[in-house]
Design a protein around this nucleic acid. Structure first.
Ligand SMILES: [Zn+2]
Ligand SMILES: [Zn+2]
Ligand SMILES: [Zn+2]
Ligand SMILES: [Zn+2]
Lengths: 167, 167
DNA sequence: AATCGCCATGTTATACTATAACAAACCGAA
DNA sequence: TTCGGTTTGTTATAGTATAACATGGCGATT
């Protein structure tokens, strides 16, 4: 546990990062008496391998290649399970799914999404949540769920020529 | 201009609210030399009439009823125009569109969405933006666009029996 | 070990959301 | 009036997600 979130750093140890996420997932599912079946584990692995938001249909070919059925319900069921366990999050503005770097406890999620390199990192949403809570409570609104997805350019991509900060 | 944003108040003057939005839209388009054609105006009217986020395909029948072609491109083109002019916003987490209460100038948008009555109100996102900017700048991330969509229960719906704050 | 029931997966079909591509009509400026 | 760009019509298709029911595997209980 307590893995590092590599953020937008391109040169972190990908393999370690992924293995660590999978191992944490196994531990958590065992603790919770949930079944991390081969399909579910494979989907989680694929998401971490790519290390960027992945569309459901992008994942299907790899499922087929691994010998599983690859009709849409297969992948959506796996994604549903992984989301319920907090192992992946859905990014609504991209129709895509990404691994959660700290699935041990449920939490509000928010993302910075780089339009240059397509990577996304999970934000600490506490400050955003405080701001939202304040606005909401003025209206007597009771928050149940927050979607916070910010598109822009990461530090690396800002220094690449040709990248502009358009969404 | 300077219309009131009725927020979650159920008993505001709907007709006035809608007429005002349409009249503002006409003014803005004239100023900008953009053409608020009958289809575009009708789509905007339908969105304001319902006064809640509307899916593209929910709007199509009314287009057909008004004698227009009602194939999907018709509605998406109108919505694209209205978004470009800032007259409507898209809510990604709902795949839906809603009228903007202050389209005079471009702005970041954010929404509180009531899961009880399906209404949505546009937030003042300045405080949220400050919080996001701070988090982003720590990572050297340059923000281009923010999606902020908060689901919960409005004050009215909290007092209705049977409503819970689940998203 | 056998049984039972639940959960997971397979399979087919379909709903829902959005865009591509090209033709025809319209509209406004020169 | 003519021209050229914009808007709309039309057909087709891409992309995202779920319904519904059958089948199979796994694990708890006996
Ligand atoms: Zn997370
Ligand atoms: Zn980047
Ligand atoms: Zn707005
Ligand atoms: Zn409400």
């Amino acid at each position: 546990m307590n893995r590092e979130d590599p953020g937008f750093e391109a040169n972190h140890n990908h393999d370690h990062c992924m293995e660590s996420a999978l191992s944490t997932a196994k531990d958590l599912c065992r603790e919770r008496k949930q079944r991390l079946t081969p399909i579910r584990e494979l989907v989680l692995k694929l998401i971490w391998e790519n290390h960027q938001p992945m569309g459901a249909y992008e994942l299907l070919p790899a499922l087929a290649a691994a010998g599983f059925n690859s009709a849409p319900p297969t992948i959506y069921r796996a994604l549903e399970f992984l989301q319920e366990q907090g192992l992946v999050h859905r990014i609504a503005s991209l129709n895509a799914f990404i691994g959660c770097p700290h699935p041990e406890s449920p939490h509000r999620s928010g993302f910075l999404i780089c339009s240059g390199c397509q990577r996304a990192v999970e934000l600490d949403t506490a400050p955003v949540h405080r701001a939202l809570s304040e606005s909401a409570s003025e209206l007597g609104f009771k928050i149940a769920h927050e979607t916070v997805e910010v598109v822009g350019l990461c530090a690396d991509c800002q220094s690449q020529p040709g990248e502009t900060a358009d969404a």
